[in-house]
């Protein structure tokens, strides 16, 4: 049961990514191409999502605990540091090159396209590479 709900939640996410156009790098890159073939659609994706998450989170986070677990797992970091800014800046560069973000690419795997697998393999490579780098710069911060 626990996993069935997760499967369904993943499915809703994947369907939303498919319908919204976030699954399509051509559309994503055109969203960024303000000086060229600009397609403003994806701004509406964020608006649609926030219209649900802002009131939805407000309701859910009022409850003492989620349905299946004893507590909420929320990030407690508040600092805006170089790591956040430079990491996000780097992410944007990669997103601008390939047109896929992680949330767009994972559902796209379901189409079986080789180039999507190539992207996700490289993405996993990047995550692991960063993990190695971070463990070298040994901080006591839990990942």
């Amino acid at each position: 049961m626990r996993l069935l709900a997760a499967l369904l939640i993943g499915l809703i996410f994947g369907l939303g990514i498919s319908i919204s156009g976030m699954i399509n790098p051509a559309k994503v890159l055109n969203f960024f191409d303000i000086a060229g073939t600009w397609d403003p659609s994806l701004a509406f994706v964020m608006v649609g999502a926030l219209c649900v998450t802002i009131p939805g989170y407000r309701l859910v986070l009022k409850r003492p605990a989620p349905v299946m677990e004893s507590g909420f797992h929320l990030p407690d970091t508040k600092v805006i540091d170089r790591r956040l800014v430079l990491g996000s800046a780097t992410f944007g560069i990669g997103w601008g090159i390939a047109g896929f973000c992680p949330g767009g690419a994972l559902p796209a795997l379901g189409t079986g396209r080789v180039d999507v697998f190539l992207f996700v393999a490289a993405l996993i490579g990047g995550l692991l590479f960063a993990r190695v780098l971070q463990s070298r710069v040994a901080t006591d911060k839990p990942a």
Binding site: L84, A122, L127, L128
Partner: peptide, 19 residues
């Protein structure tokens, strides 16, 4: 695609999240 994927992977790790 591969270069973009690698850069995204490193960036989201340090940035602590994506879209």
């Amino acid at each position: 695609v591969v270069i973009g994927g690698l850069i995204v992977g490193v960036g989201v790790s340090y940035g602590g999240g994506c879209t």
